[in-house]
Write a protein that binds this DNA or RNA. Structure first.
Lengths: 341, 341
DNA sequence: TTGAAAGCGATACCAA
DNA sequence: TTGGTATCGCTTTCAA
């Protein structure tokens, strides 16, 4: 049976309260006693028991404030499922969430949402947001006041965040390149559909792709690159036009999940979906459907459920346990084809 | 704040002990009182608190007995890592494991190992074993005595197991077929390296593969099929011979992880590894290395870590909580190429 | 600076 | 058939 605080107290000949004070650095213990306790802790191999800790911690419940730009964006559905699964599993331990969903990336809206969360006196923040001077300052101040901030899906390099959890976008791009290299046995005429030239993550997906194509010396012709701002309608128009101009296109690489439906509709209308191989990102509902219909051939996914689920768990154990998480968790690039969807 | 057993007791006007007896069906409560308690539980939305339960459960620690045919088989390394991670995380809750590792599938050895585990008075079993009349009988008797039995990696259809967790072998085969269909742009001359004709799982990997090749109408020539009994040396000899006889082979499908090193050595020696695309199973240490070296192009993995990790967690929560798991958990078929390994 | 004791939620056992 | 109480390991508060 494991060593408990009681054993330590008995061994050292002090009360459990004193041992607790030493272990959790609450102060108010003479150096001499503290040293003896610490030595006993070391020698006897004491490690605090979570069940006991959690039970005692119920006296002050934990609320985690979450912010996602998820309104109208199906990608975040799985992240949210992860949030709620974690909340449910940890609800016995006193955890509850406050989730704010906003639309898009308007700094004012994000700032207001963050302020609302903080006004509710949350014990931690878990956010996918953007860095503006105001937001960065607010989050850093929050962290400084002892309320940990976690960055999910979108990293915040200038914020003193407890950790980041999300995709490794470069690896995603590299995987796309690797797959295309494996699949490409003949001449490759490639059409790239990009989200936005100034969103860093989308750029990385192209950079990684190009890296691998070069490393593997996979010959290909880059027929066209279209930027869609993640808008399906824009993607549709652009794809239709480009495909009509270029009958030789046989591969399409879509770096942003929201564009896939538009691209596929164009392929369908031109009756070219059998002859073109499509690589896209994220297994949200629409994209799964498109894969089942045979429009998308390969989906590269980023374990979005796990992003939400793990984020909440890391925060909880940090709060209740003091367990410090790693600074960065990169979720895997998961390859899905029709058969293992 | 959530409803506790105390709240129920107060509302009904009985003691906490009585409420506990009703909730856990321990008997010895008058029907009238039981009905009132049950009604209160329903109305007030009571749900037992895990932290409290776990703490109380420490009075009788939980030991889980595990049996794996893992001796000399690197595949099981990750399953074992999953076991120990779960043990570590749950050690605060009084969980410890007894792991017996045996070599191969000798029924006598398995039976003896199971008997040893049971002699140690374990609270549950988690096993990867085979079905013989004796083993099936022993496990069924164990389950009947209230010691739950979980099947991991290898299902035991005739055993009254609490659940099975492991790969869906058919889906694995189907995924292999889907990938080959995507990659095959020209003529396909295929060499299949199988483990054993009478191990059901290996057969399913071939069946699923064939299904998809037919569904997708992917043309291919099956040049040869060799059975290796999962022995790397046998695989080496067979591959060398077949490759020499058939210079046209451009795809190799290896359905059993242990054969991959032998196959790759043959490819290396014949200087054909660049011209042949290799699909294999499981990301154990050797196979990962072979992929990095460029010998294996695609690895189909089965989340072996999760098999071990989840199995222990399901058993624990069943024992302490009464949470009944699903009857079957199929881990995903994870596609790994060099870029997302 | 330290000890003693109550309490978190559930369980188990003894007594009535 | 029931109630009362000690206990699991830890935190927190009140006294000393």
């Amino acid at each position: 049976m494991a060593v408990t605080i009681k054993d330590i107290a008995a061994a050292v000949g002090v009360s459990r309260g004193t041992v607790d004070r030493v272990i959790n650095h609450r102060g108010g213990v003479s150096e001499e006693v503290a040293a003896r306790v610490e030595q006993a802790v070391e020698e006897m191999g004491y490690f605090p028991n979570r069940a006991g800790r959690i039970l005692a911690a119920r006296k002050k419940p934990v609320t985690i404030g979450c912010l996602l730009p998820s309104d109208k964006i199906t990608f975040f559905h799985d992240v949210i499922r992860g949030f709620f699964r974690a909340e449910r599993e940890l609800s016995d331990f006193g955890v509850s969430l406050r989730l704010k969903e906003v639309r898009g990336y308007d700094p004012e809206i994000h700032l207001a949402a963050l302020r609302e969360l903080l006004a509710e006196n949350v014990s931690a923040l878990c956010v996918a947001t953007i860095e503006t001077p105001e937001i960065t300052a607010l989050l850093n101040q929050t962290a400084a006041e002892g309320v940990p901030v976690a960055a999910i899906n979108i990293d915040l390099p200038h914020v003193n965040r407890l950790f980041y959890i999300g995709s490794n976008y470069l690896a995603g791009g590299r995987t796309a390149g690797g797959l295309l290299s494996l699949m490409a046995k003949g001449p490759v005429s490639l059409f790239v559909v990009a989200g936005s030239s100034n969103i860093h993550s989308h750029h990385l997906r192209i950079e990684g792709f190009a890296q691998v194509m070069k490393e593997k010396e996979t010959a290909y012709t880059l027929v066209d690159v279209q930027v869609t701002q993640d808008d399906s309608e824009v993607a549709y128009e652009a794809t239709k036009r480009v495909l009509q101009e270029h009958p030789e296109i046989n591969y399409i690489y879509i770096t942003t999940s929201g564009s896939a439906p538009g691209v596929c509709r164009a392929l369908e209308e031109l009756e070219r979906k059998k002859r073109v191989t499509v690589i896209a990102f994220d297994d949200n509902k629409e994209n799964k459907r498109l894969m089942k219909e045979g429009s998308i051939d390969v989906l590269l996914c980023q374990e979005s459920f796990r992003q939400g689920y793990d984020a909440i768990n890391h925060l909880f154990y940090y709060l209740v346990d003091g367990t410090v998480p790693k600074a960065e968790y990169f979720t895997h690039t998961v390859i899905k084809i029709g058969e293992n969807l």
